[in-house]
Design a protein around this nucleic acid. Structure first.
Length: 806
DNA sequence: CCTAGCCTAATTTTT
DNA sequence: TTAGGCTAGG
């Protein structure tokens, strides 16, 4: 009924047969034939296979615009799903640009926000309230940790991390504790324990009136399956469903889409006419866009088959292939193609560009990750001087920890940068604390949140007291939160009793501000106001100010920023409530706050980079064990997924692509030798111009690099080469990776303990015997300056050079 | 209940 | 290297 405003009758002038010719010529302008077809096609199911940079967002927005323009659909009948909020915002903006205000009323959002919206509306149907909160992975980890401890599950080898990831996987497969228990071997104590934990976890969530990330999707599917009438409301409403990045959907998301595109189950008329009923009998029309070569989320349940088997799932589906790339130069695309074609069982697809070859990929090998970072920084500065905007340059890496070295060097080199992701703002302790205060007020059932802040700042309420309160609540059949209101009956001394009463009062005061008991609708500024009351009157701020921990100063700043965020939120959402605020905050992704990155270089992981593009891209850490990551080696499909990740990285670049690596890499204090990634071998030699090849660095390359080595002036106390001025382009280029067979597939050599001193004689596999002149550097980065009897002077990295002491 | 100090474990990617 | 957990002492 809530949708009585949604017109169910198709507007006059349009029919199921499609738009009239000429109704949207301008929307087709500048599109290639395949893109046009993807915009114009009308039918129950359409799969757009969109290679990287092939203009899929353009196609998608123009398709939506055309549906609206021709009045085939009302805005409210359109549901478009994207992967990030940022992508959703962009899409909405672009559709509005095309057709103006009439775009209002569309649902363009992520899977998660769409589900939250549905769940909020329907929560009461199945044991939750509209005030439910959303647990991010940190929250659920904390809960699972507690449960693991309580159940003493660690004795069976179950760690919080393993339990969490297993539960997450199961939920993505739409399994619950019961269905798991049916299939599992219950004689195995570990399995039994896990089932218990899963059940307990789910019970706690329900009790806390909370959903975790995976629940948002899975529970929506359950809801639709358990209450077909509810599902019908949405089936009637959404007549056109479009899903972006379809290759990254997991089973639960697939099922959700499937439920939504089903024909309405009940025939009870809710006011629509005949025509509407006929339409609904067919189910909504579904458009999915994706590229199986860019599927990089299998680790969290994405099922590549959702896209590869689309035609089977939706018989009669139309498939459109977009292969022309409008983003990159041909050299970049050729590199990308030559890497990705090493994945078997993929449909061959070849991106092409008419933009010309462009520049070659530039390669660099540093002695250490700092050396590598210095190269990147130098190049960035050089490009900047040539007029390239910082905002048009990006540095990618496989793991977040790699950002550290880059940051250090960038700070020193005064390169403005912005890290996307990493330690996220909303995952900082103080921010989580502040949010937990808000949650405690907004959703009193959420015991987790209250437990988090009950002793922050220190109030003298430790574990023992918390348990006392908890059992009091249980005995009296009230919630933990309500127990705080009975401070006098808890049996504490005056100090603790006072502290509890104090906390209770502040929470009540904030509640009056955020959710007035007289039912009045609070002004949009109430979130900021309530937050400040909570932070100030609880003494949280004072405690930070009084602290002499230098980190706490930054924490205060962060909290100020959070208050600013709430103000901003109030401006953008005049009727936003605390719950809306908390929802938004819970669902923001790393890539979402990309806008203010202008004017600085963007640093991010390869995963975060998906969907973005930059003029200049630096792919760093192109090493074995990093990309492909060591852990992926044992996972089925792991190496292939890593290759796709690498492919995604390459295809982000418009004009210039750099690939760099280091010969040694420090991981928590220890330095170890690194090897060039196997993926480098997959790129044709003539596409890469090595400024400094792996061979140059360890003195074991082909003849060209020997010559190069011999010519290079030694004696610098920096390990890396000198900053690369224009003269460096005079260097002869080194050649392909296959000139360095020993560097790629062989086992890592480790001469870690080899002690060398000036005067020692050594033997090198390639250069023969020689005498050590000097040793510089420390630890794994020690470099021997050797004068070989026949090959002349060389610099060698002691740890990994193929040498032996005589 | 709190704090300091020692020990150890971990580092893949994230809506 | 560092964050978190654990212990002992206040």
């Amino acid at each position: 009924m809530s949708d009585s405003s949604t017109p169910l009758i198709v507007p006059a002038g349009a029919g199921p047969r499609g738009p009239q010719a000429g109704a949207f010529d301008d929307l087709l302008e500048g599109l290639n034939p395949q893109q046009r077809e993807a915009v114009e096609y009308r039918g129950p199911a359409l799969l757009i296979v969109a290679g990287a940079g092939s203009g899929k967002t353009r196609v998608l927005t123009h398709r939506i615009a055309s549906l609206l323009r021709t009045r085939e659909a009302w805005p409210s009948q359109i549901l478009a799903i994207t992967f990030t909020n940022k992508a959703a915002g962009e899409m909405r903006e672009r559709v509005e640009q095309l057709i103006g205000d009439s775009a209002r009323g569309m649902w363009i959002s992520t899977f998660h926000s769409a589900c939250v919206r549905i769940l909020r509306r329907e929560a009461d149907q199945f044991g939750f309230t509209k005030a439910f909160t959303i647990y991010d992975s940190g929250d659920s980890r904390a809960l699972i940790k507690r449960l693991v401890k309580e159940h003493e599950a660690d004795a069976l080898g179950l760690t919080p991390a393993s339990v969490q990831s297993k539960i997450s996987k199961l939920k993505n497969e739409l399994a619950d504790a019961d269905s798991y228990a049916r299939d599992a071997n219950m004689n195995d104590p570990v399995e039994r324990m896990f089932t218990d934990l899963f059940r307990a976890y789910q019970r706690q969530l329900q009790k806390a009136n909370a959903f975790d990330f995976d629940d948002l999707i899975a529970q929506t599917v359950y809801l639709f399956r358990a209450f077909p009438q509810v599902a019908d409301v949405y089936r009637k409403r959404f007549r056109h469903i479009l899903v972006d990045e379809y290759q990254d959907t997991n089973h639960a998301q697939y099922a959700l889409i499937h439920e939504l595109t089903r024909p309405v189950s009940s025939s009870t008329d809710v006011g629509g006419g005949m025509l509407a009923l006929m339409d609904e009998a067919e189910g909504a029309s579904l458009t999915v866009v994706g590229d199986s070569d860019q599927s990089i989320y299998a680790f969290r349940g994405a099922d590549i088959r959702n896209i590869t088997e689309f035609e089977r799932d939706y018989p009669g589906a139309k498939v459109v292939l977009l292969e022309q790339n409008y983003r990159s130069t041909q050299n970049i695309l050729t590199a990308a193609n030559s890497v990705i074609r090493n994945n078997f069982d993929r449909k061959d697809k070849r991106l092409w560009s008419d933009q010309g070859d462009g520049e070659k990929v530039i390669g660099f090998t540093g002695y250490s990750q700092h050396d590598e970072a210095q190269f990147v920084a130098d190049e960035i500065e050089q490009l900047r001087r040539q007029g390239v905007d910082y905002g048009q340059m990006a540095v990618f890496y496989r793991t977040n920890s790699q950002s550290r070295a880059l940051e250090e060097i960038f700070i020193r080199a005064a390169v403005p940068y912005k890290i996307m992701g990493g330690t996220k703002f909303y995952e900082r302790q103080e921010i989580k604390d502040a949010l937990a205060y808000l949650v405690t007020v907004a959703n009193p059932a959420d015991e987790m949140a209250l437990r988090r802040i009950i002793n922050k700042p220190r109030r003298g309420i430790g574990d023992v007291s918390v348990e006392t309160i908890s059992s009091f609540a249980e005995r009296n059949g009230i919630t933990f939160r309500d127990a705080l209101g009975h401070s006098a009956e808890l049996g504490f001394g005056p100090k603790i009793q006072g502290a509890i009463a104090q906390l209770h009062n502040v929470l009540v005061e904030a509640q009056e501000i955020l959710l007035p008991s007289n039912g009045e609708i609070p002004p949009p500024t109430s979130v900021a106001e309530g937050l400040q009351v909570l932070l100030n009157k609880t003494g949280y701020m004072d405690a930070l100010r009084a602290s002499r921990d230098p980190q706490d100063e930054a924490r205060i700043e962060n909290l100020d920023e959070l208050v600013a965020v709430t103000r901003e939120f109030a401006r953008n959402n005049p009727d936003g409530t605390v719950l809306d605020f908390l929802t938004t905050v819970a669902l923001v992704a790393d890539s979402d706050d990309l806008d203010d990155a202008s004017g600085s270089v963007s640093l991010m992981t390869l995963h975060t980079a998906k969907g973005l593009e930059f003029d200049t891209v630096f792919l760093t850490g192109v090493e074995e064990d990093l990309i492909p990551h060591r852990i992926s080696a044992n996972e089925p499909g792991g190496p292939q997924e890593e290759r796709r990740l690498f492919y995604v990285g390459i295809t982000r670049a418009r004009k210039r692509l750099y690939m760099s690596l280091a010969m040694t890499r420090a991981q928590f204090g220890e330095v170890s030798a690194a090897m060039p990634s196997r993926f480098l071998q997959e790129i044709p030699a003539d596409l890469i111009h090595w400024r400094q090849s792996p061979g140059d660095v360890n003195g074991r390359g082909g003849s060209q690099s020997r010559a190069l080595n011999a010519r290079r002036p030694g004696g610098s106390d920096r390990w890396g080469v000198k900053p690369l001025g224009p003269s460096s382009s005079l260097k002869p280029k080194s050649t392909a990776m296959d000139k360095f067979p020993g560097l790629v597939t062989n086992k890592v050599r480790d001469n870690g303990d080899l002690e060398l001193a000036a005067g020692d004689r050594i033997r090198h596999d390639d250069f023969g015997e020689g005498r050590v002149d000097a040793v510089t550097g420390e630890g794994a980065k020690r470099i021997a300056h050797v004068r070989f009897d026949t090959a002349g002077p060389k610099k060698l990295l002691i740890k990994i050079a193929p040498i032996a002491k005589l």
